[in-house]
Design a protein around this nucleic acid. Sequence first.
RNA 1: GCGCCCAUAGCUCAGCCGGAUAGAGCAGCGGACUUCUAAUCCGCAGGUCGCAGGUUCGAAUCCUGCUGGGCGUGCCA
Length: 657
Amino acid sequence: MNPLKELRQRFRAALEPLVEDLEDLLEMVRPSQDPRFGDYQANCAMPLGKRLGKAPRELADQIVARLEVDDMCEPPEIAGPGFINLKLRSDWLAARLQDAVKDTRLGVAPVETTRTYVVDYSSPNVAKPMHVGHIRSTVIGDALCRILRFAGHRVISDNHLGDWGTQFGMIIYGYKHFRDESAFAAAPVAELCRLYQLVSQLVDYHETRRCLGDLERRVTEREEAAVAQEAEPLPVAGAERKRAAKRLRGLKAQVAEAEADLSQARKKLARVEQSPALNQLATEHPEIAQAVLRETARLHADDPENLALWHQFLPQCCEDIQRLYDRLDVCFDYAHGESFYQQRLSHVVQDFLDRGLACLSDGAVCVFVEGFETPMLIRKSDGAYLYATTDLATIAYRMETFHPDAILYVVDHRQAEHFEKLFAAVRLWGHTDVELQHIRFGTVLDQKGKPFKTRAGDTVGLEGLLDEAVRKAYGVVSANDDAKPGGAELDEAQRRHIAQVVGHAAIKYADLSQNRTSNYVFNFDKMVALEGNTATYMQYSYARTQSIFAKGDVDVDRLRDADAAISLEHPAERALGRELLQFPEAIDECLLDYRPNLLTGYLFQLARRFSEFYQQCKVLQAETESVRTSRLILCGLTGRVIRRGLDLLGIQVVDKM
RNA sequence: GCGCCCAUAGCUCAGCCGGAUAGAGCAGCGGACUUCUAAUCCGCAGGUCGCAGGUUCGAAUCCUGCUGGGCGUGCCA
């Protein structure tokens, strides 16, 4: 049972005779923020008073008089200007807890109307090794899928792989010119990866070489502009003076930016030029960028040789990525990459043209969308298609194949405008009865606050990151085990297993516990810190629930069926019990705006309540047998809610830590 | 230039479709280990919620302006 939902139902009955249109009033029934005001509070008397022109306190009296909550709550109290404070009765709490104990869904009722969701997330470029930038989409997307499924929805997870772009032209070119036959035979994935990076570096080298003059010129121009601005006499008046100062600051920042770009470009060049081998390759392949594009174009034109290579390489590339998904415990129903939609692209463009939704401009096919100055391009002037084209084709396919009620895109916030245009174009195209959501999240930043760059080289590989987290977790697990008063309890294999679970969880949780819309500063130490609001704290709490059963030799399942009474005499018991009953509320809240951090927040609160309870209430040595049983049941339910909650986040638990 | 996002404790952040005295974690200080696992708990200290107006019985939350930062901005994804 969802207590909040139940209370709102009761308020609905009480308010209906008083007022029409009461949905917004019902939303004002909510959990109290301060325990002194009870468990829930209704704030609807004040706005209602305004609406009806009556005194809010008087209305609160009327509402309370009609409110039938005797079975559920202590007598409601009216406070301040007209707050209605509600405290749940302990016997009601205890009865609902018993319901939850017997319920495999822990009191979370399936949604009344099942919807079909397509969730599009992770979407790595299969030619490149996955790096830290892929974490957020993968982890958040996976968590949302799990939560939606648990809530009772039909969920189709789809990994929109980047498997058809220039990166394959690079690999193909590299394979044809640079491959090391024996390395390829021994470890094809690693060799393909090397080839990609080599070609990418050479392309980059020539591109940078070509732009160097522009970069130098830009620095000079900006310096001159800044000097000129500085030479201007400052206006005397306040606002004008401020504006001038701001302009100067802006110009100086631009100079710094240009200088940084230039110095980075020079470093890039030096890296190649200082290596005789690379330098030679660069000299031998001056037109490599164009050659790569030609290989890509041949692939797209169904050239038999390149297509065969693509068919050979694709599974090998995916193998590498799959290993990471296995480690992360992430899986997809479908992995329809860009290549899957190739045949449809020309039809999409033609359809837009035929219906007059798109037009030609400078040789490119454009969809103009209201509210945006710049159009969405769906075909380049050279005839090539763009990712917007693929996105449109993908939506059409999903609509006819899955008939979804909603499609969620778990993608970096920097693509917000792209999605706004895309969604608008889809509406023009006629798909109006589907919820399209860009589940945006903040960029992963480095320590300096700069976005991780995919090309710049210095990205942290995802695999190494996971290894490091596991390594750190191993250290902490061992230290904790060694420090146990009765001596260490875990053997080497157990420690390693626990370190795997704890390390991976640390990385996922660090991401999920943050509001997805804010930027995510990548901080290794913070990620794997094993204290505070972390997965480890939750996992530890879970392990403690299990260790009580082990120590007391208690059969949890038998206890569950025993129908024993639950007592909530101690404040810590009551607080824990109420928290446990709010699991359904946490799920609801979380799905309202697709924000997993609301679920982590709930779990953290629950784990804290449990720690308090654990500290203050002896379980195995409880005063009486019935209190002991009651507390054991609370421990059992706590363990199940934590385990289930973490499972919904894609995080596992262990019985001993 | 235009558009979008952000600004809350020393640090990292939560709270943001209006509710009572703004919350956590980390760091700091002081307590609690003959432990049902101290990876814990209790207490203290820490704040002009960027600034200025406005709407309201009531604003961190909504509106306007400003300041500071980030991102995006027709043929990359």
